[in-house]
């Protein structure tokens, strides 16, 4: 497509078109998390961001990761955040300002972090393009096998961490 000033605009394919929508949704929701004045709305926007990330996983043909993302992040983490906000009443009704006196410094560091990420993303040789990938159910099997072979220590330590968290929660909630 040719614009009047001689700027070439590539016409996106259907997949790119849908991807742009998903990516925009994720980015806008992520922005809403930060700038919303109502903390509960921030939590809702965060949920939407998680969904957007799941959508990106679907584009990478990693359905298992996408569904796990929804299950863990939307089903548990977003729910817990919303729950915690609902239990703290003063935050719930007070219209808190999203800005404090450190917003200038933090936005600078956020920008620097973005630049660093961009540099890493451009420097990394991504293997995905045009290569044969393990698909479908073989992928899930391969993932499970990796967890109990190559990454067994990380896997076990994570399990231990969750157990510790669980015991701590029970200890805190126990009647004395």
């Amino acid at each position: 497509m040719q614009l009047p000033l001689g700027i070439e605009v590539p016409i996106p394919t259907f997949e790119q078109f849908v991807f742009i929508q998903v990516a925009l949704l994720t980015a806008v929701a992520g922005l809403a998390v930060v700038i919303s004045r109502n903390l509960f709305h921030s939590a809702l926007a965060l949920t939407l961001t998680f969904f957007g990330v799941a959508g990106v996983y679907v584009f990478l043909e990693a359905e298992f990761l996408a569904v796990s993302q929804v299950l863990v992040y939307v089903g548990a983490i977003a729910m817990l955040i919303a729950f915690a906000i609902m239990l703290t009443r003063s935050m719930m009704y007070g219209r808190t300002s999203p800005l404090n006196n450190q917003w200038g410094k933090s936005s600078l560091f956020a920008f620097l972090f973005f630049v660093a990420l961009l540099a890493f993303a451009r420097a990394t040789p991504w293997p995905a393009a045009g290569e044969e990938v393990v698909a479908d159910e073989a992928l899930i099997g391969a993932l499970g096998r990796e967890f109990v072979t190559n990454y067994v220590i990380a896997f076990e330590v994570l399990g231990l961490l969750l157990l510790v968290a669980l015991v701590g929660a029970v200890l805190l909630a126990r009647d004395r």
Binding site: E63, V67, S68, V70, L71, V74, G75, M79, D136, I140
Partner: peptide, 18 residues
Amino acid sequence: DLNVAALYVVALGSIGIM
């Protein structure tokens, strides 16, 4: 015929909770 249908059913239940 999703390859993670069993997990999908559980994951979408969380939308109802939300």
